[in-house]
Design a protein around this nucleic acid. Structure first.
Lengths: 212, 212
DNA sequence: CGACTTTTATAGTAATCAATACAAAAATAG
DNA sequence: CTATTTTTGTATTGATTACTATAAAAGTCG
């Protein structure tokens, strides 16, 4: 029998086994950070939601900052990876943008989750001591902008937008609007209002290819 | 001689006179809140920037929350009141929007002030204990949206946009984009990039009146 | 069984938070 | 002058923060 070096579910270590589900605890932490934000979510409150005592949390995740970053990565994968794939796969640029912002409006105001995007809202004004967290959220926000840029470059190559379109500025504008929607969602707008706003996103795309 | 009941610069009270300039101290607090955000700006740090000891700050402003709200109102008047007036006075809607977002890009990345809008960024993720502050910033954000709506209704009456345009959604979209620009500004974009993004705001306005 | 390893819960660490108690200082009023 | 009122600086309050020292508990290994 080949010994599994680091196989997936091989908690075949020696010591006392962990008494909680690490994935479920991470999910609970994600919810808490998402709802409260990075700094207002205190370690005791996080641990209470996770059903775990502080020493166990620190042993399993390292620090509050590391827990946040891991929760945020899990959030991104769970909620935004698939909409992003659809956005990049949709052949028509305007349909892609409209579809992505529809998805966004649904996610940002889902009745089962906190309002707004965790990456946008949970770590906006941080103390200097949380520089690690600020860097991680900024990196993720920039990745979304880059996703817009990739899709726009593709559309420019296909003549769906004018060849002289300012793609970085356009990607930035879409990103700014998307992030602004998160603030609107947290400020109490309704799902219907948010969807009506999202529907305007596609009108930011300049019309006409080079020979349309 | 008519005794001045509460005249402007009449510190004709009895006790020991205040040894600092209240307006200058408020300005220093504004800068600190703007740069750091509401909660990361600690009372000792605020007082240090104001050149005042904590008891004097509390005597003059009441509390940290009251100081923030007063600073924010001063900020709004100092930086956004005039651009708002220009926006409402410009007869052509598209020029009004383009001009306002140009002003915004300039303010959000002025080299002499912190990046981004204080109303948008300084109080995003707050602890429950700061509900008073959260309410005040939200009210001001909604006022900007209402300003957009007022100008759009006027334009609809003049036939500058289609009569069936969804004005609340359009105002919300402009507001979302504006707030998103603040996040971009804080995330390190250049003045040039921000201006290029702001130039796209006017393309959100639907073209053509009822009989164009 | 006993040696070893890891996780558990309890209880606390030092640091920092917003807000003040207190008394000396500095003004006016009579 | 004395009495009154308000501001000043010092020093501190209790609460809360992220994080951990410690030892008992609960497993595997030989």
């Amino acid at each position: 029998m080949a010994h599994s070096p680091a196989s997936m579910n091989g908690p075949r270590s020696k010591g006392r086994p962990r008494s909680f589900d690490r994935a479920k605890a991470l999910e609970a932490a994600l919810r808490t950070f998402w709802k409260l934000g990075y700094e207002p979510a205190s370690v005791p409150e996080l641990c209470s939601a996770m059903g775990v005592n502080p020493p166990s949390m620190y042993a399993a995740f390292g620090s509050k900052a590391a827990l946040f970053i891991e929760a945020m990565e899990h959030y991104e994968r769970s909620y935004w990876e698939e909409p992003g794939r659809r956005f990049l796969a949709e052949p028509d640029l305007r349909r892609a943008v409209a579809g992505y912002f529809e998805d966004a409006a649904r996610i940002l105001l889902s009745p089962e989750t906190p309002c707004g995007c965790m990456v946008v809202l949970a770590a906006v004004n941080l103390a200097d001591s949380a520089g690690e967290v600020a860097q991680a959220v900024r990196r993720l926000r920039m990745a979304t902008k880059e996703m817009f840029a990739i899709r726009l470059r593709q559309a420019a190559g296909e003549g769906q937008i004018p060849p002289d379109a300012d793609i970085p500025a356009l990607a930035g504008t879409l990103n700014a609007l998307l992030e602004g929607l998160s603030l609107q969602a947290r400020d109490g707008l309704s799902q219907k209002e948010l969807r009506a706003m999202a529907a305007h996103a596609a009108s930011l795309i300049p019309s006409g290819g080079p020979r349309s």
